[in-house]
């Protein structure tokens, strides 16, 4: 319990750090926020409007005052209002997050499923099968989602129109983006998993299990896999980061709604509150994922029991 409390406290620290770093980065990056609020470089706000906005948003205050207000507001759960959309950031994110979650979740499931299947089926099998599998994994893990996405679009939407190329309504629109997002992650994961599985299959307890008369498959599924899962869980941070990064490109390419696309738009328009909001959300998810990983690792591998 005490350990959990400490971890939670550390999590809050991480969030605070992320908030501060983003605040500093945005402050020192190019672009006047007043212009961002009033429509961008070509807009023609009047001098009164400029002065008014500067005062209203407190940009005329010293930096530390601005920072203090910002942290204070965040602590109360107030993330401010988007410069570009003129609605609360929480509302803006709330409306987009569902689509991203859907995509991320289905891509994560597909990636893990594919990786497990490939690892279990090919570890320590016929060298040719193994070679083909690991070569294709290498290709996939080094292909960016947007290249895969364009290929998928060309084949399954344009040449052979079986799946819709754009949108985020209905399960059909989820298929291509999910595959595009999942394949590079699957390629990477299955490489790690197979390596792990092969190491484990060398272990004496596997020979013991075989000696007890268990079939090859049963050994793999019941004994080896459980051990191989540990690195998978530890890698969930990597999976999460890949999903978030990939979502930006995938959502653009497939014209899906979502926070990835929103983040890009916000960054281009220098919409600081939205950028900050999404960054903090990402940091929050990261902290939660890492907490869960700790707990899960303890369950899967009793040796890492918390002390």
């Amino acid at each position: 319990m005490k350990r959990l409390a400490a971890r939670l406290l550390a999590g809050v620290g991480v969030l605070w750090g992320a908030a501060t770093l983003t605040f500093v980065a945005i402050h020192f990056s190019a672009g006047d926020p007043v212009l961002a609020i009033l429509g961008g470089p070509d807009a023609i706000p009047t001098p009164q409007q400029l002065a008014q906005v500067r005062e209203e948003y407190g940009f005329d205050q010293p930096l530390w005052v601005q920072y203090g207000r910002y942290v204070g507001r965040i602590a109360q759960g107030d993330f401010g209002e988007s410069y570009r959309l003129r609605i609360p950031v929480t509302e803006a994110i709330g409306k987009q997050i569902g689509a991203t979650l859907q995509l991320a979740l289905s891509a994560a499931l597909l990636a893990i499923g594919l990786a497990l299947a490939s690892a279990v089926l090919t570890a320590k099998r016929n060298p040719w099968v193994r070679r083909v599998a690991s070569a294709s994994e290498l290709v996939l893990s080094s292909s960016p989602s947007f290249v895969l996405g364009i290929l998928l679009l060309l084949v399954f939407s344009f040449q052979w129109p079986v799946l819709p190329p754009a949108g985020s309504n209905g399960w059909q629109t989820l298929i291509l983006p999910t595959i595009a997002l999942a394949l590079p992650i699957a390629g990477m994961l299955s490489q790690v998993l197979r390596q792990e599985l092969e190491d484990i299959l060398e272990q004496p307890f596997i020979a013991m299990a075989r000696a007890r008369g268990l079939s090859q498959t049963a050994v793999r599924l019941r004994h080896a896999l459980r051990h191989a899962l540990v690195p998978l869980v530890t890698l969930s941070g990597f999976i999460f980061a890949s999903l978030l990064g990939g979502a930006v490109v995938t959502e653009m390419l497939f014209a899906r709604q979502g926070i990835g696309r929103m983040m890009l738009d916000a960054a281009v328009a220098k919409d600081a509150p939205v950028v900050l909001g999404i960054t903090l959300l990402a940091a929050l998810v990261y902290v939660v994922v890492n907490l869960l990983v700790d707990v899960l690792n303890g369950l899967i591998d009793p040796r890492v029991k918390p002390r």
Partner: peptide, 18 residues
């Protein structure tokens, strides 16, 4: 109205009567 940033997709959906 659909917002489709990808030029290729705007073209192909029109062509395929989507």
């Amino acid at each position: 109205l659909s917002i489709v940033p990808e030029a290729m997709t705007r073209y192909s959906t029109l062509q395929s009567k989507r």
